[in-house]
Design a protein around this nucleic acid. Structure first.
Lengths: 336, 336
DNA sequence: ATGAAAGCGCTAACAT
DNA sequence: ATGTTAGCGCTTTCAT
């Protein structure tokens, strides 16, 4: 049997209340002198001796706090997910909160039974999700990454809508006419995605005719992205530039180009979306569009929700900008 | 306020006990006829109407069951981790158990406060871990992946010791003399790792002199592995074959070779360790050594621990074998 | 077949 | 400064 607060109390010769105060670091009374130093020491010694560990479930039932933060990340192999996880778990640990990843495409089922102080969901696009999320938000703080949903008891995180994604395609269109696109299947419920839309709009703005055969689709998976890139690059009149709707897919494009002995950016320029660290570190470094400081700000926001009192749900928008790096450098005329 | 069992009971006009029986699917009495169909229906209707969700913390405090399985995975970007996660979370969901990933290098701190029915730890090599794990095992089932630890209240999973890793180096030594190695830093607490040891032993068996400059070290990270591979492959007398101590590192070697316009396996043969799906799917497909059916068997074992009664801790050994694929094909003389 | 009630470990309001 | 105690939501034993 695991030692309880009661056992610690009798070992230290004090009451359970005192033990609770000492072990949770709260003052014994609101305005008094608190627990005396000697008592604190005795309690800690007793707890140490018995190997006492607080029962988190019992705490939760009393306080309503779980000290748990859940990140529902659908595509774990995406560097974006890793960056989220890294930033959040580091920040959470500093506050004594544990963060765990739910890596299940079916978070709808899994989250029905688990409770956390705050849960972050990175992929809530499907029909009916809005309703489900609103219900979930009544039980726990909920932060959703979505380009389409509006706050409804839960917060929404998104990039600034408008021309931000288009920066990538605009950048390529300065020096290229044959621009391909790697995207998720376009026939999705909920209409055309913003990221794919940026491609179509960007071509139009640049006066470039849309070519169906320059669009390759992939399922959310690096290997699938790689294969799509191979298809695109093996065309006789292959594109001289490729826009991929996520950094990890753009990275796959670079790998595919290298496999085919194509030089990046000389033979094919590549742009991603997301501004992940992996893209920044690779060679050639990946040109991309993305938010500034996204991951750290996300982490801070999640923590403020985990700790904070009830606040009105909000939309947290991230300004994006263009990161010009080696995989798609600036045009000569831009540099001068 | 979230609806409780009490509210459901009064809504349905029954006692809380009855609601509990219905909602948890247990029979009302050990040998009686159980709850009547009509009552079941009324209770379910009431629960549905109120949007009742069981409070997991309250359940846990009574039953000691969390319905939670925690996977502590240190290197999330390793395909091995993804495979573990995929297999386990699918299997767990079938049993109504949630599995979550703890992606924190410091699991020692994080797990002190969280409780789960079973926790899997993929990286318990450091000094003092043995003691810590033994203590943790008193609170919850613990399954540890380790090549060196022995069961002590917790289960240990490992590959069959002996010549299994060596198969990789032996395979390369059939056709190569200049064999390089990509390994984690060798000067680790706890002595030489088995995987690196396989390299040294393999060379010796093949009568090949060890060359310090053919060993490149990397920290557990794909990018670091990539850089280490670049170093090795840019040597004037570069190795003609490389053994990497993990599949993801071997994959990085292949990428590095392609970057340097080297053909795999003609210019450099590559072998990994782990037999992950990513290695199997890539082009050229990765030759590797690894366990058969590892991930599914691991998932089953974890679940049996999560549900099962107390059983003596054991060592679960996995037989490994050689998977000869394209990145290091069989020698001509072997094929005949 | 159903209900009453004890109690899991802990916190927090209140009493001393 | 410390102790007493109610009660969080649920399961489970024991009555009826």
């Amino acid at each position: 049997m695991r030692p309880t607060i009661k056992l610690v109390a009798s070992e230290a010769g004090v009451s359970t209340a005192t033990v609770s105060y000492v072990l949770s670091g709260r003052p014994g009374s609101a305005s008094g002198p608190g627990v005396s130093a000697g008592t604190i020491e005795r309690v800690q010694a007793a707890a140490q001796k018995l190997g006492y560990r607080p029962n988190q479930a019992a705490r939760t039932i009393r306080t309503g706090k779980t000290n748990l933060m859940v990140l529902s990340l659908t595509l774990l192999s995406d560097p974006w997910s890793l960056s989220v996880s890294r930033a959040v778990s580091a920040a959470a640990q500093r506050k004594g909160i544990t963060s765990m990843i739910l890596a299940d495409a079916d978070w709808r089922t899994a989250l029905a039974n688990q409770n956390a102080d705050v849960v972050f969901i990175d992929d809530a696009g499907l029909d009916g999700d809005a309703e489900l999320l609103a219900e979930m938000a009544q039980r726990q703080k909920l932060v959703v990454f979505s380009e389409t949903l509006e706050p409804n008891g839960f917060d929404v995180i998104r990039s600034v809508t408008g021309l931000t994604y288009s920066l990538a395609v605009d950048h390529l269109a300065r020096t290229h006419r044959r621009i391909g696109c790697l995207t998720y299947p376009r026939a999705r419920a909920g209409g055309r995605s913003v990221r794919y839309g940026a491609y179509v709009d960007g071509l139009e703005r640049a006066g470039i005719a849309f070519r169906e055969d320059y669009v390759a689709e992939f399922v959310p998976d690096p290997i699938s992205a790689f294969e799509a890139a191979m298809t695109l690059l093996q065309r006789p009149d292959r594109p001289t530039a490729i826009y991929a709707i996520a950094d990890y897919a753009a990275i796959a494009v670079v790998h595919a180009a290298q496999r085919l002995q194509l030089r990046v950016p000389e033979d094919v320029a590549v742009m991603g979306v997301g501004n992940t660290m992996e893209g920044e570190l690779m060679t050639p470094s990946l040109s991309t569009v993305g938010p500034v400081d996204f991951f750290d700000r996300l982490a801070d926001f999640l923590l403020s929700r985990a700790e904070g009192t009830a606040e009105a749900p909000q939309v947290l928008e991230f300004p994006w900008r263009l990161f010009v790096r080696d995989s798609a450098p600036a045009a000569e005329r831009d540099r001068s």
